[in-house]
Design a protein around this nucleic acid. Structure first.
Lengths: 113, 113
DNA sequence: GTGCTATTTAACCGTTTGGCTAATTAACCG
DNA sequence: CGGTTAATTAGCCAAACGGTTAAATAGCAC
């Protein structure tokens, strides 16, 4: 049961519809109906996608009469980017060291395993 | 059916076990058994996680006798980071413009909050 | 109150996911 | 060849996912 923040963020972003919603919300706040309009799915489906995004902290929702204005939040994106870049840096660092090692000498003693 | 690359990448990263595997692989290549050792799941389960990561392009796998050495690949991470940062920048840009707008006038009408 | 609009919840359904055990394949070794 | 190790595939199962339609809720407006 992935309750941790990164799992929530990544699985929220794993769905193309939810990414489309986020892309729209990055431009500015919108109501559920406005978000649903361009999408090929029903309103209840959109409503549940929004709940997933909300649980991941990627959106916050207000109340304006019978409308639910929704705004994007960037913090979870930052955390996810940080996780990816940490792995990328470790990986790149290792690549660099390997590269340096290969370049360093005629090395027959490649014992890096 | 999310066949697109971003969906593959994000859903691969949505699982904590797969993230743990990637974290390990960022340090350097490893066999299936080595990857499975610290994990609380069976070898077949690890094998299928690796298949998911491979399909997402996050790992590549070789063959060394009966071992399957696995290496991480960073490209899908880059693409995912790029997607997130694009949204973040749009969002931030809009924040900035809103901020500027609010700051521009003497705005006694700070009705935000 | 009634009625209208916006949104959510309930109930259902087929597919996917992630785990398991048992069986199978791949490749070595003696 | 037979035996051993590494890894995958097959079959099963329960839970989660993503969609639907129909019903319920929230809030205005008359």
């Amino acid at each position: 049961m992935p309750t941790d923040q990164l799992s929530l963020t990544f699985s929220a972003l794993a769905d193309p519809t939810r990414r489309a919603i986020l892309t729209r919300l990055a431009e500015g706040e919108a109501t559920v109906g406005e978000l649903a309009a361009p999408l090929p799915i029903t309103l209840p489906a959109v409503s549940r996608h929004l709940k997933v995004l909300e649980r991941a902290g990627l959106i916050v929702r207000g109340r304006d009469a019978q409308w639910r204005p929704t705004r994007m939040q960037a913090e979870p994106l930052d955390e996810a980017v940080a996780w990816m870049q940490a792995r990328r840096r470790t990986w790149e660092g290792r690549m660099d060291r390997l590269d340096a090692h290969l370049r360093s000498k005629g090395d027959r003693d490649d014992r890096d395993r």
